[in-house]
Structures are given as structure tokens and as C-alpha cells.
Computed example of a mutant assay.
Amino acid sequence: MTQPLILCVRAKAGLDEARQALTDPKALNQWLGEHSTVDLPGTFEFWGRCIPEGDAPHQRVLAYDGHTLTLGWTLGGEETTTEFTLVSEGDDSTLIKLTQSHFDYAEAVGNSNIRGVLQTFWALALANLVDHLEGRELTTRPDFTSAVFESEALIDAPIAQVYSSLTDSAKATAWFGYPVDIDLRQGGRFAMGGFDAGPGVEIVELVENRKMSMDWGPVGISTWELAESGGKTRLTFVMSGFDESNPPYGAWLGWLSGVAALRRYNELPDWQITV
């Protein structure tokens, strides 16, 4: 059995607000799934196109005490355990901890089981939960019924600043929360984990302040483009060239959760990453 996945985020909201966002069906439908049914301590279900294997609800409540909610979630033919814990840090700050069993990094890299999406699925969901609690527009939500990977985000910062955040190794490492090394030139390399971990992937197209494409092999080609929009920056992100019969949802959600962090990094003066 693998070690449980643990993710933490901090929201500028009180404990009661965080609890409501987690347990109110209308709130859940805004930041998590399209559909939900909640009647605690007996029922907590979510489903829809934004949820892996979301054709129907596959969750059951294992425990709930007002601060911790523990679910059994059947995914990929096995029941996993998902746990939310809310920790008050004062009247206007709550730490939200997510613990998830049955995440295997090898399944994520190999795209061999839907459970491989769990890390990036929850990273994006928690980012959306924080934005919901803080009254910010959500960056995006996934669609597990589609093999078209294209998304947009409007970032309240000038193009040059956003471009630098995307292409400077130190800045990309800061907002992504993981070492990133970039040899910034067409034909250069982009390395998640840094060049010490391997050579990375090739940058196949680069236009200063506008566009970068990277070739990830079987996972496909990822491309982001920047455009000015009323003093802000519109970022369009696309993945293409992968096997559409087995879309790399985990990789796609990893980029989407990264874009959510990129927005906060550029827009919030007191931004800090929480993992």
C-alpha cells in the first residue's frame, strides 16, 4: 500500500464558512462537482463531468464530527479513503487538509488507472475551494467526459509579468511548488524536477511574451499563449497530440492546478504556497 497523499491549503475564511463550503450542496456544485447530495452524518455524494468516473455517485460517509469528514470513494474498482480536516487559525483563516489513499505515482505517470489523477484532481479542487471561499472567480474546472484539452484564464497582471512567471526558473518553481528548470530558447529544455532529475522535454516553439510549446512525447504537446485583454493577460492553454482513447487527465489537471497557482502568484501581494 502506498503512503497517503496529503495536500493542505489555507483560506482567508472562518471555520464556519469553510465548513459550509464543504458541506452545502449548492457550494459544492460551484467548486467541486456538478451534482451533490449531502445529509450528514449519513450522506455525502458528488458526481458529474468534473469528477473522475462521475457518471454516478460512488462515495459513502465513514465518519463525520464537524471538523473531519472521512469518505469511502470507489474509484478504478477499489474503495479509496478521502478525508477532509478543517483547522481554525483564527476568525478569518482556516487550514484545509486533504488526505487521500490509493494514490500511486507510477499510475499517474503511466496513465494506467483513473486513480492516477487523484493528486492533480484534488490540487485543482482545493484551489477552486479557496477561490470560492475568498470570493474570487474560479480558474477552471475539468471535464472528464471530453478529450479536448483547452482552457483559458484571465490574469490581472501585464503580459510581461506573466511571461516572466512562466519562463523564469525561480519564479516557475515558486508558484508551481516543485523544482522547475528552463533553458529558455527554441530547442531548449523544460524540466519538471529540475535538470538534476533529468534532461526534461524540448521547447519546440517560443515567441517572447506570447507563446511556448513543449513536446512531452506520448503525453502530447502542451502550448500556452498570452494575449492582452483590457490591461490584464488572457492565458490560453492547450494539450494535443495524445492518445484520445486514453486521455492524460492527470497531466492535464496538473497544468490546470498550476494555472490556478500562477493566477494567485501574480494577483495576490501576500501570496504563499501551501502544500
Rank of each mutant, 00 (worst) to 15 (best):
A191R: 01
S169G: 06
E150V: 06
V180G: 01
A172G: 07
E152H: 07
A172R: 00
I159C: 13
I182L: 10
I203K: 03
A153L: 04
Q161F: 08
D143I: 01
A174L: 09
L138V: 11
S213F: 11
E205Q: 15
R189I: 04
D156F: 00
G198M: 04
A147Y: 06
P199V: 00
K211V: 04
P142A: 07
A170N: 13
Y178P: 02
F144V: 00
Y178L: 08
A191Y: 03
M214P: 05
F190N: 02
S213A: 15
F149S: 09
S146F: 09
P199Y: 05
V207T: 08
V201I: 09
E205K: 15
E152K: 14
E137Y: 13
L184H: 11
G200R: 03
S165R: 08
S213M: 11
Y178F: 07
F195Q: 05
E205A: 12
I182F: 06
D168H: 11
V204M: 14
G193E: 02
L166M: 13
K211E: 13
T145A: 12
P199A: 14
S165G: 12
G188I: 10
A172L: 03
D196H: 01
T173K: 03
E202Q: 14
S213E: 10
D183A: 08
L166G: 03
T173Y: 06
V207I: 06
M212I: 09
T145N: 14
D196E: 12
I203G: 08
S151G: 09
S151V: 12
R141N: 02
G193S: 01
G188S: 15
F190K: 06
W175A: 06
R141P: 09
F144R: 03
L154M: 03
K171G: 05
G135P: 07
T173R: 02
A157M: 07
L206F: 08
Y178G: 01
K171E: 14
T140H: 07
M192D: 05
G177E: 04
S146Q: 12
Q161A: 14
V162E: 06
T167E: 05
I155L: 13
R136V: 10
Q186V: 10
M192H: 05
I182G: 04
K211C: 13
A191S: 09
A174G: 01
F195G: 00
G198C: 00
T145I: 07
G135I: 09
Y178Q: 00
F195C: 03
D143H: 09
Q186C: 11
